[in-house]
Design a protein around this nucleic acid. Structure first.
Length: 471
DNA sequence: CTATGGCACGGATT
DNA sequence: AATCCGTGCCATAG
């Protein structure tokens, strides 16, 4: 918590603030890069081993008592704690109480062996060994742990050879195996079914140009970027969802996550996980804020000693390192603290939304949250942007959606239209909403309706096409 | 004449 | 300071 400040004349505050803000705006995956970079560049910075909480067996990544066990006090309050996530394999964190259903039934050796069998006949000795090496190094999702140039170096093959073998594997039976991630896997699979469907070309553009948005299901943004209609984008997203598999290895390892209805098709891991405590809807909500590494950062005490002992030209550079390290740690703590406070407030305020769906989202502005927390509103902006949160029902949504004023209204519009007997005009819908106390302009109804991919009243007529995919 | 979608303006957000 | 979103005004399709 407290760092011994070097009596530095440097304007610590400006640098500190600037760096805090940049860290705050980073999603977990990028923060991981950032921390690793800092660790490798700065010898004064050190990552301590994780501990296991003797009580709840969770991994701890900060000094002091286990935050989860010690926090379980206040009945109405949500439980918010940081949770180390150094592996990005799981699609999302599993609820704390349930045993993980995935990845134990089949032996992990099965898949590589199976894949190798298909290829063996086509390859010479040298390439067969290369293929075996690659397959052995895949992570649990069937993706490459190392980039191709790395493999080339490790196996003393040329990059061209590596790419060739990779391509063969990827087009083998679990299509998309041994690619670099969900996106590449999907693209390979897309290539393989080319020719048949007109949606293929749009699907490719969506994967290539707007993959991040696709993961977050921001269909409007995709449509805008690609110049397609929201309707087309939705249809294509459904097409991708039905025909392609972002995690090729999972189909083989009997994961129960892929098939059931709970929207498994989000192609990235969340930064935050919210789960319910019990099965009844009354228990407190648990919020895990993922941190990129297990263990915790601190200034290396040996380095500090060495600095005081050292003299001469080194000491200045070393002092800078040390200052930078301590600064970085402060920034990380600042970030964690802000995220914790933010999430505690958000979950408390929006409990109904989290548990019961879009319609119960209370309108909330960032400015208001900033005032509650006593920070600048731009801080909230940074904290909220680029983050994704997994809800108890399995949906993964951008954190910014907590501030989407239109969400609950759009949900109501969808309901009104689905229950209508005769097609209602936008004006009528606006009127119905007004009776419920929602005063929005007719023009706005039209926009929301378009966003939801609902045709205008004139075109809805009698045949209704149930298009709802996210409920 | 009515229902919609396009364009632009003002306020909020970033 | 730049950008996004809700809304009003207006042209157009039916």
């Amino acid at each position: 918590m407290l760092q011994i400040q070097q009596p530095s004349v440097r304007p610590l505050t400006t640098a500190h603030l600037a760096q805090t803000m940049t860290l705050l705006a980073l999603p977990n995956v990028e923060l991981r890069e950032r921390v690793l970079e800092e660790l490798s560049n700065n010898p004064a910075l050190e990552l301590l081993e994780e501990r296991i909480c003797p009580n709840c067996q969770r991994r701890l990544h900060q000094p002091g008592p286990c935050p989860r066990c010690s926090l379980q006090k206040q009945p109405g309050e949500p439980i918010v704690f940081l949770s180390p996530r150094d592996s990005y394999r799981a699609p999302r964190a599993l609820p704390l109480d349930d045993p993980p259903p995935e990845r134990e039934p089949a032996a992990p050796e099965d898949l590589p062996a199976y894949a190798l069998q298909q290829l063996a006949a086509d390859l010479d000795e040298r390439k067969r060994r290369l293929a075996a090496y690659i397959l052995a190094c895949l992570d649990d999702d069937g993706f490459l742990a190392d980039p191709p140039p790395f493999i080339a170096r490790a196996t003393r093959c040329t990059l061209a050879e590596v790419d060739e073998v990779l391509d063969l594997i990827a087009r083998g039976d679990p299509p998309g195996l041994a690619t670099q991630g969900p996106r590449q896997a999907l693209l390979v699979q897309l290539d393989m079914l080319e020719g048949s469907d007109p949606r293929v070309s749009l699907a490719r553009r969506m994967l290539e140009e707007t993959f991040a948005e696709l993961g977050k299901r921001e269909f409007e943004a995709i449509a805008r970027t690609l110049g397609a209609s929201v309707r087309e984008v939705r249809a294509t997203a459904a097409f991708i969802q039905e025909n392609l598999n972002p995690y090729p290895a999972r189909a083989y390892w009997g994961s129960g996550l892929q098939s059931p209805g709970s929207d498994p098709h989000v192609y990235h891991t969340p930064d935050i996980q919210i789960s319910k405590q019990g099965n009844n809807g009354t228990g407190p909500l648990t919020v895990e804020i993922f941190t990129p590494l297990s263990g915790w950062l601190r200034v290396n005490p040996l380095f500090r000693q060495a600095l005081s002992a050292a003299s001469g030209e080194h000491s200045e550079a070393w002092a800078q390192h040390l200052e930078r390290a301590s600064l970085f740690i402060k920034c990380m703590q600042q970030r964690n603290n802000t995220m914790r406070r933010l999430m505690r407030l958000l979950v408390k305020e929006q409990r109904e939304f989290i548990l019961m769906g879009d319609r119960h989202l209370k309108p909330m502005t960032r400015a208001w949250v900033a005032q509650q927390l006593g920070v600048h509103e731009s801080t909230i902006s940074r904290a909220v942007s680029h983050k994704s949160v997994a809800l108890p029902d399995g949906r993964i949504i951008p954190l910014a959606r907590f501030f989407d004023r239109s969400l609950s209204v759009r949900d109501r519009i969808r309901e009104i239209v689905s229950k209508e007997t005769a097609p209602l005009t936008d004006d009528q819908i606006a009127h119905i909403l007004a009776e419920d106390g929602i005063r929005i302009a007719r023009r706005t109804v039209a926009k929301y309706r378009a966003m939801e991919g609902i045709l205008p009243a004139r075109l809805r007529h009698k045949q209704k096409q149930p298009e709802g995919m996210s409920n």
